[in-house]
Amino acid sequence: MSLREVFESEPDRRYVMFGGKGGLGKTTLSATSAFWLASHGKRVLLFSVDPQASLSDIFQRDIFGKGPVSIMENLWAQEVDADRRIREYQEEIRKKILDMYGFDKVPEEIDNYIAAASAEPAMEESAIFDAVVDIIVQGDYDYYIYDLVPLGHALYYLSMAKVYDEWINKITKLREDMREYDKLAATLRREEKVQEDQILGELTYIKDRINASSRILTDRKRTAFFFVVVPEEMIILDTQKAAALFAKFDVPISGYIVNRVLPPDLGQGKIPPYLRNRIAMQQKYMEQIRVTFGDEIRSYVPEMERDITGLPMIERLAQRLFVDGGGAR
């Protein structure tokens, strides 16, 4: 089945992700797919949470930290500025404390905690996670397309949804037990009622958000997850390993896209010997890819002679990704 047929036959798969090792062209293929869907009348949000991502470079305009920016009809692109999100969030928390207790300033001890918590290495990741949930639960786009940060992170990232959910359940249980003691103490003291526990409300809120996103990430009906692979030995091996791990986390894999394929007719021209050797090497690994991934391959994308930056170039690549590359090869 070609990439185009996957999209056409599975219109409910609105959450589209591209994964793979760094440098294989995930961001470029995300942008290209977004372009293709948008030009077929779908409202598409393309976003990236990777601080090393390059949507700004691909579209040749600065969209970093600016929210969804309209790129063309039906296509919006967004690059999340995690640092700024954390800073704004810290401010929000401070303000909430001031409002709740009527303080003039946040107590030093608490303020130190807020600052120090942001220094935690885990802060950025959890902020990014939350940003993704935000984007996915709020919008009203037909498609959400994003490139996952390099493989190791992507895996953790996906597994986090489950883990967070467990965390929240445990913590909620503890909080509920505390509430039982509150009730008991109140009954014994013959007090009328127990104060409402706002923390339970917060925990429910967090849990709902996490569940929403984890459902989306592992939902075979709504999620399409594509692996990007290139004809190189190491990459093929890494991709196989990663695919096995993803399967363990119940992430449905919708197929593989083979990127950076040197044009086969190139070998017929007058080319320097090193290029000829490279083509020979590629052919060997192309064979390996065909054997390994077989009919899970959704498209073959040629190595382009130019960077994929700017809409005209993306349009050319879209033609290759969805039309030319989809045929059996």
């Binding site: 969030y89 709740m100 918590a117 902020a127 967070y164 909080r175 917060e202």
Partner: peptide, 28 residues
């Protein structure tokens, strides 16, 4: 509860810090 949600700075990281900050105002 505070240990579990904010204990990261005592070397007991359990809840991601982004979410523990959300609970901070209530246990201030």
């Amino acid at each position: 509860f505070i240990l579990i949600t904010m204990g990261d700075l005592l070397g007991v990281p359990i809840l991601p810090p982004y979410y523990s900050l959300r609970l901070l105002p209530y246990v201030t």
